[in-house]
Write a protein that binds this DNA or RNA. Structure first.
Lengths: 342, 342
DNA sequence: ATTAGCACTCGATGCACAAGAGTGCTAATA
DNA sequence: TATTAGCACTCTTGTGCATCGAGTGCTAAT
């Protein structure tokens, strides 16, 4: 066998072994596990070279080798093979998702739950961004003598509701009046344009009507803001605390970062690449320097939308996790497409 | 001073000091901090007696004393004084809550957020149980060509919505027909009675109509189940990971337990006592044996409803935390009463 | 290019020892 | 009887030191 090829095989074997056991792997152990016959001395020489290239390190001088993040990178890009999710697992995933396929939000949080359960790491799913969405329809529903619900339906098929309170006794007549007047103003308006200022100007042009139910305007504004905000569903954070590969410090830093909704959302929506694998410092986030992320984008009606991601340790089962994440992204995309446009 | 009284003062001083510093407190240190003059030897004798009574222990033979959970119990029940929340803080809390006082769910999750922020521990809030609630009204709102939203309004003023999909093109006429027929069946039915079997029988009695939109019935069922389920809002779990008083093991056990929604909900709704303080094993939950809970019930319209709680270490600032929790319970109760019955 | 052999490194483990904090006990005292 | 001073005792923490063993790097032979 070519020495160059052997070195790669050795790197692969080291990563595989280390991912499995968590123990630094030495030349002798490796020698036994390989399917070609070379002595441990040869392997030592090769490992020394791989270390020189920055693909391996030693925790200390007299211990086995451990992949560096660069080593993982080569492994992920060139060496490992992603084997598809088994049909049986595929079926289980689809079934679980179908049980929650009424509203997009439920589907997404269920997806995060499933992904976390099968990978045993933490999972996150972002909702599709709504920056191109506009107001399709606004409705009002009476819910009590003094309370009503604003319903906002977006062009993307999302529905947001908000309760509000009136100072006078609500009746369908007033709500209908308001409904008609407001739809004239709002239909077709981009969600991001439904600002307090916009609401203010709408109120003025509604004249007397707007004085009756100022809270309705606030409710609409809140609903629009809510619809325009990218949500994130997070599951299984506490699983990270039980992984032996995380030190206490890394685990809590990671969990703490995951709880910063804005930051993690931004990270996931950063790029439109179908699948990204970020290893350790590649995340550019100090708190995640011991963690790896697999981020897959899902497409709704062939347009790249939200992201579905797994957060785990750098010593992660990349092959299996990538397969699972990609499968879920694909399935969620398909289901959402049906849900929103059907 | 009476020796008996002095012993209690000493216990109080030890708890205060230990809560503040986290260091076991020795006779000498304590001697300086006391406002009455006795020698360290006397204090040693008293401490020995308190230890005999099971109120203090030593981490090891030659270190200072630390309160046992029983010691904390005496401290909480007899010694400490709960000083009310300052008017300034009260104002800040009310203002934050008012910003989210549209729907009960928002109010409750905001309350959890606030409580976690001011105590710097984890906080949880359960929604009022709905076991006595019945269906007040069901409505349907068209949201798309093939989609509609079921709206369920309960006797307690809660509103739940659920999207569903129809195989034919939706129009107001069908929805209205369905609406009228279904309200006849459902109005006044207890939420807990809206079972699949009940829905089934309703479907049959609706005849042909029910065949048109079977998904609507499922949506109603889901909405009712959702309304009947006690929700819990959880905030600041990851703060527990950074507390020096928790070992890694205790912290992750605690966080893991908090993520078991059913278990933590049951614990909070276990009793109707206005304020409970559970210290360590008093929770009867092994995973929480290093943690303490402050649980205050809030009343909606003078009826005991949900609970609002703080989860922290046994070495907790009980006085301040109890004050904060009780104030939030009171305020949330008042606001919710206005929201649901007004 | 590969291998056998060997000296070397370094963490882990166990042990001894000193320092320091804090106790428990005894005997004296108010 | 309650309090106190004094002192021996205990136990943790930290340090130094020798040993062990896994695994390496290097050299010389194949």
């Amino acid at each position: 066998m070519q020495p160059a090829i052997r070195k790669l095989k050795i790197l692969e074997a080291i990563v595989d072994s280390y991912i499995g056991t968590g123990e630094p792997v030495g030349s002798k152990t490796l020698c036994d596990g390989l399917d070609f016959n070379v002595s441990s001395a040869t392997i030592r020489n090769d490992m020394a070279e791989l270390a020189e290239l920055g693909l391996l390190t030693q925790p200390h001088t007299s211990s086995g080798r451990v992949p560096t993040n660069l080593g993982y990178r080569i492994y992920v890009d060139k060496l490992m093979s992603v084997k598809p999710v088994s049909p049986k697992e595929q079926g289980a995933i689809r079934d679980s998702l179908l049980l929650h396929s009424d509203a997009p939000e439920h589907l997404l949080s269920e997806a995060a739950q499933i992904l976390s359960d099968i990978t045993r790491y933490a999972a996150a799913v972002t909702s599709p961004p709504a920056d191109r969405a506009y107001v399709k329809r606004v409705k009002f529903v009476q819910t009590g003598n003094h309370t009503a619900m604003a319903v906002l339906i977006t062009s993307t098929g999302m529905v947001r509701t908000r309760l509000f309170r009136c100072d006078f006794v609500v009746n369908d007549e007033v709500l209908n009046l308001f409904d008609n007047a407001l739809n004239d103003k709002l239909q077709g308006t981009m969600l991001v344009d439904v600002t307090p200022a916009f609401i203010q100007s709408a109120a003025i042009s509604l004249g007397e009507l707007s004085m009756i139910v100022p809270n309705a305007l606030i409710a609409i504004h809140d609903a629009a803001r809510d619809a325009a905000t990218t949500n994130i569903a997070l599951e299984g954070q506490s699983k990270l605390l039980f992984l032996p590969e995380f030190s206490f410090e890394s685990a809590r830093q990671t969990v703490d970062f995951l709880n910063r909704t804005n930051d993690i959302t931004r990270l996931l929506n950063d790029s439109d690449e179908p699948t990204r694998v970020l290893i350790g410092e590649e995340t550019k986030i100090p708190e995640l320097s011991e963690a790896s992320l697999i981020i897959s984008k899902y497409n709704v009606s062939d347009v790249c939308s939200g992201a579905i991601a797994v957060i785990g340790p750098t010593r992660m089962n990349y092959s299996k996790t990538i397969a699972n994440t990609e499968y879920l992204a694909h399935t969620v995309g398909t289901m959402l497409s049906g849900l929103l446009n059907g």
